[in-house]
Structures are given as structure tokens and as C-alpha cells.
Design a protein around this nucleic acid. Structure first.
Lengths: 208, 208, 208, 208
DNA sequence: TATGAATGAGCTTTCATTCAT
DNA sequence: CATGAATGAAAGCTCATTCAT
């Protein structure tokens, strides 16, 4: 349900923006932000590089827009499930699996996105870095809601430090993605990771 | 047992190298690799910037040396404890606590190091990135030895995917450090993290 | 006596030209020719900047047209009085006063014009510069007619080098305007200048 | 009598600066500040253009340094004569002649300087413009001292508005130089101008 | 061994101008 | 006629690296 009717001209402009972002995603993730030149982006689209500056203030602005989009997608995934839904630990285990799976999907389908947020953006100017950290933090806060629900419903430990635990959960998730990115990992890794993680998180490594 | 007697001249040169690395650590971690200039490093030491090139091939070479040193320190910590030592889960819990503590120590004492390996180095050329990933991987392999010991001794789950689990453990550890770096976190955070982690890892979040 | 009846369509076009020139006057005098962009001019008129190119060949062409207009106005003022009119030195003094006053009026009413011809145009390509110099020269030639009349009528010195003197007169006039432009001069300055100039020119500074 | 012994190294650097300024004088006066590129300046000296940036912050900085030097030379000339020296109008007439002559000399010997201060600098950023105006103003203030001396000694009119008159004198002087620059003027012009000016200034154009 | 002057590749960015719509 | 998206030449500037001293 769109609120504004799609003006064709705005759409054209929007499409250009998208093209540029798409090309930038390619270039930045391949060569890295600093090595990449505006010319590379424009070159990929066979447009004059001046054109990029009609749609973005500068190179950094492109990255910002890119990061925004990626984080949006990330949060969308995390938000899809409802924190209150699970009533038993088994349901919860499934939720975890789902979210993990979706995230893996998201970043496996387009590893370029992961490269940007997990590697490039972290070494750049304070504002981008902060933006990503905020995004990750937000994701952790959402995760925390799940944990709190679990504690409330009684299937998670009462004394659980949900703040810490949510960050640990996030860390595992993202680390899995990071490792998955480093091409030298076999394709079954993701599957193993996804299967092992919920058990690890819920039951720990210790013998019962 | 040194194989070659320490020639004073080699020592002098070695000292210079150290100085430069120390200065580079400062500068790179503060301004970031790209923003930092060779001149900044030399400036800090009040030496001509040409001098840096007598001790290092180029700017990237300095970073490589820096990363080497940092990873060395990291592995040293992880190696300090012996994977075979623990015989009960309680001993193991203590080992984990120890290692975690030492790592926190290492990177809290000198957050510059963490900034370099966890942020800067990851956005640079493939060789540095790989080097860091290898370091982290090595750390995970070591961790895995502990886990295998645990499984063998029977205080960790028999079916534990030690490869995955070791990476998860690492992830939690490093995430803690990363979060700790983002200055806006209060000083008690480290303590909470360190206390919560072993339990999380061993018993998970689920209610027993 | 117009030769062609004013076609309404030509008038519309003419009006557009005028609008653009007016806007250009604003923009050029405010930001300077180089800092000003075609977009600024078009922006002021809320028209597409491509439109400017339907009325002018290029940016420089706009300046040329502007300078033409300004110089035209300048010469109009100088031409208003008739060089042959004065018969006594007192009449002449009044003529001078008048012309000076009108010029001050002209450029005080619209200092933007002065900024263009006296500052911007002089630092641009040879053709504009020459055009302005020619205009100033023409103004001096006119002034010279007055002087020649004065010599002929006997109220100016017989040996007066009218060529030089006319240029000196011009110089004083224009310098007054230039100084007046530099905002930090008080409003009474113009009055003092206008009053002092005729005496200076006619009687000099020396004691009689 | 130098206060500091001339360090050879400082001299070398100083020499480079001078070379660059000299080349810039050439280039700026020939092509105009905006048309001129740093590359042109460096090209003239057969040095890398980066070198210019070792000695000057940026392009504008070069112009500033240039203008400073020119204005210094200008003021030096004006300062050479002493305002209090003249006791009769004839002595004063000679002083005027001298100063005028020297200024003509200064700017005829190196018309490039005149082009910079009288044309280029006036169309540039506020700071340069102001600097030049200040220089010209300073020159007028000095001239005023001469006039005040003349009034005091009684060979200039008692009621003379010395402020205005000094500016008028300046104007004539500089206009002469400006006209002289426009190559199409014959070489005798300067001589005529210099001869006519003192009389004009002292006795005016009116018949006695 | 240490220096820092010199270098120039290479980047980002601007904006006058064109032209298809 | 009017538009403004697209263009790309052209410029300023930085800084890692070299090398004569």
C-alpha cells in the first residue's frame, strides 16, 4: 500500500540511485572503499563519473547510503520474528534457527553486503563506524527481547544477564557469517554452524 | 637459548624498529591506517620520515610488522595455559576465566592493538586480512584443543562439534573486547562479561 | 522611430534576456564571475539552467552582454550634458558637478554594476577587459570634448594636455566610485568627494 | 646589516620560494589567476607541481605572497621621500614628480606586478582584495602626509580636504599606470602623463 | 645511517555545456 | 521553447616513495 503514487520521473531518478548503489556495492566490496574510485563505479555502469555526484554528495555519501540499506535489511530480518511468540524452549530453538538461517541467507546471497558492514565500514570515519555499531547494537537489543521473553516464560535461566547474553548470541551469529565469507571455508560449514549454534547457546558445551 | 650473540649494532637497529612500530601503533590506531601518514609516525619520533624506509619497505610493511607483533602477543596469551591440564569442569571453567581475563587484560592495557587487528587490518589488502584471520583461526585451533581435552576427559558433551564451538568461544571473547573498545561502555561491563561468559559457554542459557 | 514593429514574441524573448541579465548582475557581483555558476543565475529565476543557453552562447557571453549594458548606461550619463554648453568656468563647474553626481547616482543606485565593470571584468579574458577599457576610454574622449570646449572658450588653460587631463578627470571620478563601493566608507564620503572634486580639478591644490 | 647569519639551507629554501613566486608572477599576469594552473608554474621551473605545495599552502597562498611582495615594493617607493621635506611649492612639485616617476619605473620595469594588483587581485576572494585596498589606502595615507605638510607650510590651500585630495592624487597616479599597461599606448605617454600631472594637481585645469 | 626536498601518480570534485525529451 | 540529466575535461591537492647529500 503505497502512500504516494509513483511518479515516473522520481522513479527514474530513484532507479539511477539504485544502479549506482549496486555498482558501488560491487566495487567497494571488491577493492575496498579506499582503493575503489568513483571512476570504477561509474565505469561499471558506463556512465560519466560526474553523474554519481548528481545523486550523491560524495564518495562517503555513497557508502553511507549503502550501509543504511544493508543495516535496514539486517534489521528487517531480525524483526521478522516476534520476540513474544515462543512459549517453550523448543519453539525458541526454532526461532533462533530461523533467524540465524535468514541472516545467513541474507549475507550469503550477497556476501558483498557483509564485506561492507563487517570489514570496510569498521575502518572508516567515525560516523560510518558508529552507524554500523548502532545497527549491530540494535540487533542485539532485539535479541535481548527474545531472551527476556525466555526468562519470563521460564525456559531460560532466571539469573541470565540478558544484555551480555544477547551480545554473545549476536557475536556468534556474526562470526559465523564472517567465517563463511572467508572463501576458504567449505559449503557445509554454514549448515554445521547453524545446527550447532542453538544447542551451544541453549545447553552450553558442558555435559549434562 | 639465543643462537646469535646480540650484536649491539643490530640491537640499535632493532630498537629503532621498535620505536617506529610503537609510534605507528599510536598513529594507526588513532587516525586509522589511511588517514595516518608516514610523516605522522616520523613526527612522533622526531626523526626524518625517510628514516622509516630504512627499517620498513613501505607503509603497509609497517602495518604487517605491527599485526605480526600483536598476533604474537595474542597467541602467547592463549598458549600460556595448557589444554591438557583440566580434569574437571570446574578446572576448565577456571581456565576459561583465566584466558578470557588475560585477553581482556592484553587489549584493555593497550586498546590500540585491538583497534588495529579488529578494525583497521580487516579493511586492508588481502594479505593483512588473511594474516589476521589466520591468527584468529590459530587461536580457535588452540581453543579447540581445550575442548577436545574436555570431551576426552568427559566433562564436555561427547557430540560437541569442537571446531564450531571453538570458533563460537572465540567470537564471544573477541566481541567482548570489541564492545569494550567502544568507549561508551561502562567499566563494569568487562567484569560482567567475564563472569557471564564461562557459564554461558558451559551451561548455555537454557534452564536446567 | 522604430524600424520594426515590436513583435510580441520577440518582446517575450527580450524580456527573458533581461531577466537573465538582471539575475546575472546579482550573482556575478555578489559571488564574482568565477565563483558564480550558471545554476545560480537560473536558480534565481526558477528556470532550468539549460534555458540560459537559449539566450546566450555561454557564461562569458552573459558577462559580455552585461558589460555592454552597463557601459551603455555609463555613456548615456556622460552624454546627457552637452560639451559645448558651458561658456564660463562657473557653468563648467556646474556641468562637472552634474556629471559627477549622475555617475555617483548611477553606481550608488546599483553598486552591482560598478563591481562588475571595475572589478570582475578587469580580471577576465582579454576581450571583456578591452571592452571595458574602451568604454572608459570613450568616456574620457567625451570628457575631452568638454575640456577642449573650455580651452576654446578660454576658461581652461591654453596649454592643457586635454587628452591626459580628461583621463585624470575620469580617474578621479571612478576612484571615487570605487572607494565608495568598499562598504567601510561612511555615507558622507560621496558628498565630500563630489564637492571637492570640481575645485581640485579646476583650481588644483596649490595656493593661489 | 643582517640580524641573523644567513643559513645556507634556509637560503636554499628561500630561493625556491622566490623562484616559485617569480614563475607565478609570470603565469598569473599572463593567463590570469584562474586560467593559470599550478602545473603552469611548476612547468616553467621544470619542477614537479607537488613541490609548489612544499612552499605554499595552496594556489591562493601563492597569490597572497605575491601581492604582499608587490605591495611592499609599492610602499617602499612611496616611503622613500620624506613628507616633511618640501618647504616651497616648487620643492613639492619635484617630490611629486619623483614619486610618480618611481612608481612608473616600478610598474613599467615589471608590468606583471601591476597586472596582478590592479586587475587580478581585485576580482578575487575578499581577503586578497582587502589586502590590496589596504595597500592602496596606506599609500593614500602617506600621500596625505605630504598634503598636510603642504597645507602647514602654506603652499597648499588651507581648506584642502587632504583625505579626499590624497585619494585623488593616488587615483591619477594609478590610472596612469593602468593606462600605460594597456599596450596600445605609445611610449611617450608616460612622459606626458608625468609632466602634466603635477601641474594638474597643483594648479588645476582652470585658467589663472 | 639519516635526512627531507622533490616527485608525480592518482584521487575527488566541480560545473559549463549539450541534447534528448 | 524549456528542461535538467548526463557528461567529462580539467583542476587542485595529497602523500608514499625515492635518492642525493
Amino acid at each position: 500500500m503505497r502512500t504516494t503514487p509513483p511518479s515516473p520521473i522520481a522513479n527514474r531518478a530513484e532507479a539511477r540511485r539504485e544502479q549506482i548503489l549496486e555498482a558501488a556495492l560491487d566495487v567497494f566490496s571488491e577493492k575496498g572503499y579506499h582503493e575503489a574510485g568513483i571512476a570504477d563505479i561509474a565505469g561499471k555502469l558506463n556512465i560519466g563519473h560526474g553523474t554519481c555526484y548528481r545523486y550523491f554528495k560524495n564518495k562517503l555519501d555513497i557508502l553511507h547510503a549503502l550501509v543504511d540499506r544493508i543495516l535496514l535489511g539486517l534489521l528487517e530480518v531480525v524483526r521478522k520474528e516476534s520476540p513474544e511468540k515462543s512459549n517453550t524452549i523448543e519453539e525458541y530453538r526454532n526461532q533462533i534457527k530461523n533467524i540465524g538461517w535468514e541472516l545467513f541467507q541474507l549475507f550469503s546471497k550477497d556476501p558483498r553486503q557483509a564485506k561492507i558492514v563487517f570489514f570496510e565500514a569498521m575502518a572508516l570515519d567515525e560516523t560510518v563506524k558508529r552507524k554500523v555499531q548502532l545497527g549491530i547494537d540494535k540487533s542485539a537489543r532485539l535479541t535481548e527481547l527474545y531472551l527476556k521473553n525466555g526468562v519470563k516464560k521460564g525456559f531460560l535461566r532466571k539469573e541470565l544477564d540478558t544484555r551480555i547474553a544477547s551480545q554473545a548470541v549476536n557475536a556468534m551469529m556474526f562470526e559465523g557469517i564472517r567465517i563463511n565469507l572467508s572463501s576458504k571455508v567449505d559449503s557445509k560449514f554454514a549448515k554445521r554452524w547453524l545446527e550447532e549454534m542453538p544447542t551451544l547457546m541453549l545447553e552450553g558445551m558442558g555435559k549434562r
